[in-house]
Design a protein around this nucleic acid. Structure first.
Lengths: 225, 225
DNA sequence: CCATAATTCAAACAAACGTTTGATTACGCC
DNA sequence: GGCGTAATCAAACGTTTGTTTGAATTATGG
């Protein structure tokens, strides 16, 4: 048991690293087990299949994130009507905070974002299962914060807001490559604030909903350096 | 020659269709040639390799799009200082317009967005080569439209704006799946307007730059010396 | 009408893939 | 100590992958 837990985690850690950089289809089990320093067959022994590894690596971290998202949203709404910034912060902050965690955080988020754009029925059903109620919950909160928006328009803008998040988490180095690298991806707080204010302004575009007033309310304080 | 052109196009059309749905790594050459109704070996005869097909299918449509983007931007700037909406429209409209084209448009855009998120050195270099000067050009235009924004913040928001576009073009059915499908993806014009106003508001967030449309002074902006 | 190049085709290639097997080692418990 | 389960291991499984071959077919040009 003690050894097996080690092997399992070794596999999942290597999966996070390799899947995030090459996608799940771009990583062979031989490369995976070689990186993890374990035997090839142990993948099937512990996870049943290659899909099993992907799903396990996915669920290992996505559930705590979504729980934290709902907690933050509950807290924001318990203090009265939550504004757009609070809702968006509850949605973005847990993911970005993990992305800034010391070791495997960033790798996982990139893997997660890559899963999101990668085909494969098993990944789709996993996403649906893990995210459906979260999305529904946040859609309700945003609808309350932005009563002027029609259902269609609200969903459209949620689509945009999710696109910003996915793209940021994917952190494809292409964009920075184009622009000879001026962004500092390790500045999590700054990125979060920028995302929240950007998307919040987008949500409010063309509505009578009052602007954010002050830029405060973000869950993660960004110390300006 | 006449036949070869047909075969070439048959392969590229099938590539657009299959790559857009399964990614380039998720499509075998046998599935591709079977769909195209051509012989397996004709892929290597006409394109040299599987990568060659992907690059050819990519470049076939991305160049006209980028040319049209630059033309639109030139036109917008020739009439005076271009505001954010004009710049964003020049960036988004050509891509979305092709996405709405009758047959292969939508498929191509999804393939394009999938290429963007897929790994592979040959795709990265292709993107860099085709997009670098376009991005640089649009960054300059946005900098002129939003002089208050620092270079860092401008690039960050461009990253967000590109994320919105990529995500919209990818049109992963996941989001609509979560929200029991209320959006109409065929409404290109509505989507474009929504994207532009959403992202433009995001770009203006926290700046003193006046909001669009309300004031008619876009074309006759005072010289800023 | 023939010579010549261009193109298509069925068949096979070696390599890599996910998966399975059966033997072997390590560990907990009576 | 010895039994039984858990875990690791090297080796091989059959399939699929991208790619190549060489002959057959089609179009081209004098």
């Amino acid at each position: 048991m003690t050894q097996s837990a080690d092997t399992k985690d070794l596999i999942l850690d290597a999966a996070e690293l390799l899947f995030s950089e090459n996608g799940v289809e771009g990583v062979s089990l031989r490369a995976l087990t070689s990186k993890a320093g374990v035997n090839l067959a142990s993948v099937h022994y512990h996870f049943g299949s290659k899909e099993g590894v992907a799903l396990a690596a996915f669920c290992r971290r996505v559930r705590p994130i979504n729980e934290e998202r709902l907690e933050l949203l509950d807290k924001a709404e318990s203090e009265g009507a939550a504004d757009v910034e609070s809702v968006l912060t509850a949605l973005y902050a847990p993911a970005l905070r993990l992305a800034g965690s010391p070791v495997h955080g960033r790798r996982f988020m990139r893997m997660c974002a890559r899963f999101y754009t990668e085909p494969g029925a098993y990944l789709e059903s996993a996403f649906t299962q893990e995210f459906a109620h979260v999305i529904t919950r946040f859609e309700g909160a945003l609808h309350r914060a932005l009563p002027d928006l029609s259902r269609l328009e609200l969903r459209r803008r949620m689509h945009f807001g999710i696109g910003v998040m996915v793209h940021t988490l994917l952190d494809s180095n292409r964009t920075r490559q184009w622009t000879d690298d001026a962004c500092d991806p390790s500045d999590i707080g700054g990125t979060l604030d920028a995302m929240v204010s950007f998307v919040a302004a987008g949500f409010r575009a063309g509505t009578a909903t009052p602007a954010a007033g002050t830029a405060g309310g973000a869950g993660i304080k960004a110390d300006r350096t």
